[in-house]
Amino acid sequence: MNTNVAVDAQNVGKIYGIGNSAVTALGDVSLSIQKGEFFTLLGPSGCGKTTLLRCIAGFETPTSGAIHLSGRDITHTPPNARPVNTVFQSYALFPHLTVAQNVGFGLKMLGKPADEVTKSVARVLALVKLEEFADRFPQQLSGGQQQRVALARALAPEPEVLLLDEPLSALDLKLRKEMQSELKRLQTETGITFIFVTHDQEEALTMSDRIGVMSRGALLQVGTPHEIYENPADRFVADFIGETNFLEGTVADGKVRIGTGDVLDVALKVQTGAVTLAIRPEQVSIVPTGSGIAAKITETTYMGTDTHYTLALDDGSDIVARVQSNTTQAHKVGDAVAIRIGTVQVLQS
């Protein structure tokens, strides 16, 4: 086995309940996460990302498949015997212990001598910039500070893998942005493998080395943020990551004919017959009538830097264009215009 693999999941499945009431939380997920990688599991709620995380942490036992940690089978190892720590969504800080005692808990349970625990706690608290709060209790801290304590507590035992279960979802936008770069910094500084679970695609795109997109218990695509965004494997991924327009079309003579009868010259691989075109709104530009596909503006939304235009094509399909706001050339609802389409992803229907 490759020695650079931190976590290796092979055909992991998790089914809750039995018989007719059985619910499949995880289908048949196989995944390799490299050492030192910032890996994000991304998907809507209920897609199985948290179940997969809990299987890696040991809070759930998969009903099928195996999980290896640095080559060791840990599928049935209890959570306290896994060199893996978790940052919980609810933080789950111990309210009866001080910040320092919370952070030192893992090392104390591992039986480390008291002076070593004290030293490590001081080092990790410095890492998350919470030195002066060591003797406070968690209730006396703000949400953002509690988040840092949770992070420090999970980092203190220097786990092989750090699991983060939507840790930023309880923070307000400004704090969340701060913590995003903070997390990235900590990951680079410590070199620990991070597995991050989120439903926020923007968060996933900005922080991750690689992303695994999940839906309904299945892993749909694994790749770098760039690959996932520019080259979505299917309609779900394209739709979930960023905004996407979908136009139905058919392949003819190496080109794609869409519903309006217009023919687009797009890069085709092996697709034939009916296809779906995934078009990012920023790839749609509005041009004067006659110089592109005829369209009519049905809705405009001013977003500051950008303006979103919803356009109706002749066949009744809608397409959204995102263009830089331009006061002198703003289009109004009802304007007849034309559109030109840039980069297109062709998905087999």
């Binding site: 809070f59 306290n80 978790t86 919980f88 789950a92 111990f94 009866h96 893992g106 349970m109 035992p157």
Partner: peptide
């Protein structure tokens, strides 16, 4: 009581007995 406390203790290397002694019982 939030059972996440006990889950967190287990995650931080506490055996079931240690979890009871250091987390469940004090709370």
């Amino acid at each position: 009581m939030d059972t996440a406390m006990e889950t967190a203790a287990a995650d931080l290397y506490a055996t079931p007995l240690q979890t009871f002694r250091y987390v469940t019982l004090p709370l």
